[in-house]
C-alpha cells in the first residue's frame, strides 16, 4: 500500500529529524508532535528536535513483512528510549540480528525504508544502529 506523494512529504521532516512536541505547561515531550498534550490537555505545545541516541527497550525480528518491505526481510524493529526519556519505534540496521540485546546503546541515522517500485518515490526515515563511538 503506497503512500501518496503529499502524504509522504508531509511527514518527512518529522521522520528524518525526529521532531516532537514539548508541552509548555507540564514539560512532557511526545513524538510525533501533537496539538493537545495527552498528559495535561494543554494546547500550548512547541516543536523540539529529539536526541538521536538512546537504549534499546525491546525488539522483534520481522520475518513476514508488510508489502514493500519484502526486500529487507528479515529485519529488526525496536522500541528505543531516547536520552531525554522519550520512547520511539524504529528499525534497527547495521547489526547482526543475533547480536541485538536489550539495553544496547544505539544511534539514529537516516536510511531507506522502502521504494515505491523502480520508478516511484524512495521513502527515508531514521533507523537506529549500534553506537559507533
Amino acid at each position: 500500500m503506497s503512500e501518496s506523494v503529499p502524504r509522504y512529504w508531509r511527514e518527512n521532516k518529522v521522520r528524518e529529524r525526529l521532531i516532537g512536541s514539548k508541552c509548555e505547561n507540564c514539560g512532557k515531550i511526545t513524538f510525533p508532535p501533537r496539538k493537545v498534550c495527552p498528559y495535561c490537555k494543554s494546547k500550548k505545545l512547541t516543536e523540539v528536535e529529539l536526541p538521536k541516541e538512546g537504549k534499546l527497550l525491546s525488539y522483534s525480528i520481522v520475518r513476514k513483512p508488510p508489502a514493500e518491505f519484502e526486500k529487507y526481510a528479515p529485519y529488526a524493529i525496536g522500541i528505543i528510549a531516547l536520552e531525554n526519556g522519550v520512547n520511539i519505534i524504529s528499525q534497527l540496521t547495521d547489526v547482526d540480528l543475533k547480536d541485538i540485546k536489550i539495553g544496547m546503546a544505539l544511534e539514529g541515522i537516516v536510511r531507506k525504508y522502502r521504494e515505491e517500485g523502480e520508478e516511484g518515490l524512495i521513502h527515508y526515515g531514521i533507523k537506529f544502529r549500534p553506537k559507533l563511538k
Binding site: K71, Y72, T93, D94, I109, V110, R111, K112, Y124, K127
Partner: peptide, 13 residues
C-alpha cells in the same frame, strides 16, 4: 553499502 543505503543516506552521515 547495506540494502538500505544510498548516496543520500551516506552523504547524510
Amino acid at each position: 553499502p547495506g540494502p538500505d543505503e544510498d548516496v543520500f543516506t551516506m552523504s547524510y552521515e
